[in-house]
Amino acid sequence: MKDLEFFRNATLGQYVDSHSRVHALAPLTKYLGLFALAAPALASRPAYAALAVMALGLLVALAAKVRPAFLLRGLKPALPALALIMALQVLLSWPGDESAVLLRLGPIDVTLAELANSARIAARLAALMVTLGLFTATASESQIVHGIEDILSPLSRLGIPAHRLALVVGIAFRFIPILAGEAELIVKAQASRGADFGSGTRNPVRRVKAWLPVLVPLMLRALERSESLVEAMEARGYSGGLRSRLASYPVGSGEKALRAGLVLFAVVSVILVSRAPSPFGTWL
């Protein structure tokens, strides 16, 4: 019963600790890097611009000793979705589309704009997936949390306890595997009492009913466990105020220059990719 193994899916991206120089960067720098690649990927108009961003991402991956194949493998599950998008693009006719009709299949026109749109969506998605995959491969959970803390630290200086948001994210990370264990136990308990999950019935109302005995105790257990965690945190002296931190990420002058470079790159590349000339006219 493979459905019952929730740990299989309960991770978002995967950290690959290869001790590279990219891994050694401070979390804040990694967030800037994420921004510097994600912004042009999202802003790119022609598909080739997005593909250029993706290629850059793969080059950084090489420097980070993360195999490009590892990142590209993540694209595979997206292929059916991409096929669907393309089908939708082609099947629907879009108001204002005056581009050349390339192919006529009965009532369906395949236009240049539709193809170009499909290509752009696919390229943007691929670029973003590579970028985010690279980020989660090089930033561990605790660095993701520390990064949020560092980004928000100017607020802390104003006396606003912004670290609380970082703590929320940290607790969420910690609880996902715990919830996976709880959910597995609950599903097994209810399956042992004759509940059926997914199997057999096609009746959606019955399927909704089948989830209640899982969802309700899962949320109740989450709340019960949060009561215990509240006590544990209070007992260890936390009361919501400002705190210090063990982890520190000393930033040398080289890394400072890199940060400035990343911001500059983000600005320039966004301008470039959003104005990049399209080989197929205005629609692209």
Binding site: R164, L167, V168, V169, G170, I171, A172, F173, R174, F175, I176, I178, L179, L218, M219, A222, L223, R225, S226, L229, V230, M233, G240
Partner: peptide, 11 residues
């Protein structure tokens, strides 16, 4: 508040 936010976010 912090813990409930974190735990329910995890859910």
């Amino acid at each position: 508040k912090i813990v409930v936010a974190g735990v329910l976010s995890a859910v």
